[in-house]
């Protein structure tokens, strides 16, 4: 999936990926897509929850070889 920016969270555990996502998403314009790469299993549940609470749109997760690519659209 195409993204406007990428955030590398490989090797980082909770709560660092969501803390970094919150910072990083501020660099994007509304409507742009952020790709977060993480190998923390928890991200699969945490990122949709983060999106729900912060009012951003969770698009999808692509998972391969223990690495998750999560796509989030900035809505506000």
């Amino acid at each position: 999936m195409k993204a406007d920016a990428t955030l590398d969270c490989l090797g980082l555990y909770c709560p660092m990926p969501i803390a970094k996502t919150r910072e990083k998403i501020k660099d994007l314009r509304i409507g742009e897509v952020l790709e977060i790469i993480s190998d923390d299993e928890g991200i699969k549940e945490d990122m949709p929850a983060w999106c729900k609470n912060t009012g951003n749109e969770f698009l999808r997760i692509e998972e391969r070889e223990g690495e998750c690519r999560v796509y989030v659209k900035r809505l506000k």
């Binding site: 709560p15 803390a19 919150r22 609470n53 912060t54």
Partner: peptide
């Protein structure tokens, strides 16, 4: 961890 996570959730 909870505190930092909560701020990340805009709390």
């Amino acid at each position: 961890s909870l505190a930092i996570g909560a701020v990340a959730m805009e709390m």
